[in-house]
Design a protein around this nucleic acid. Structure first.
Lengths: 105, 105
DNA sequence: CACGTATTTCGAGGATCATCGAACGACGTC
DNA sequence: GACGTCGTTCGATGATCCTCGAAATACGTG
């Protein structure tokens, strides 16, 4: 995980709408969520807007899609989140002290 | 930590320049770093640009400043980072499985 | 108080983003 | 193959961002 990649993912999560989308997907677990339900759950007016946000999340590797018949199932990519959190935690505790990683170290 | 606040902090870290600034501060530890050194270390052409980025980091609570004579010492606010990482980790592992928090749970 | 260094604020430029409606493509059904 | 649903792509508009140079402010020194 380099700085550029991390920044892209952070930027992707740095929009309130996208963060809620991602949050909904994470909470949905491995089963994922179809785009339609995602739109209702987060409360996005236009489907095109959600599609736009989803594309960004997918391009950064935070979300994946799988076709199931007519609907597209969206899922959070947990390893990506894992790597991102790990990057932040490593930066945080590399030379300084915070509690995030101290209990693990 | 609500979604709005988290999104603001993620957005603040979602710019490559700002992420590098923050990274430099985190690595500098509790001693912090004066603005000038920060500019040189990250390699920002204009001081005004760095000032602009610093303001955003400060407004989101990720960075603090303290005046020492003529220089301003910048420091990473570790509890803020801690809370942000915690938010992400909680979201990630609330209902689903990833390894970030599993070793702690 | 004039001066120099450190840093911010101001103003402007080009670039990117967020959101929407409308049109289009993908897929199963009748 | 006509149709309905699901979702994306296109095009446009207003807002925000990033970057910079120039001017202004904060602070210690002589």
């Amino acid at each position: 995980m380099n700085v550029e990649q991390a920044a892209k993912q952070l930027e992707a999560l740095g929009n309130p709408t996208r963060l809620q989308v991602y949050r909904a997907l994470v909470r949905a677990g491995h089963a994922g969520l179809p785009v339609r339900q995602l739109q209702e759950r987060v409360g996005i007016a236009a489907a095109s807007t959600l599609s736009h946000h989803l594309r960004r999340l997918i391009l950064t590797g935070l979300v994946s899609q799988e076709r199931q018949a007519t609907t597209l199932i969206c899922r959070a990519v947990y390893p990506a989140m894992d790597a991102l959190v790990g990057f932040l935690a490593d930066e945080c505790c590399a030379d300084a002290g915070c509690t995030t990683r101290n209990d693990a170290a």
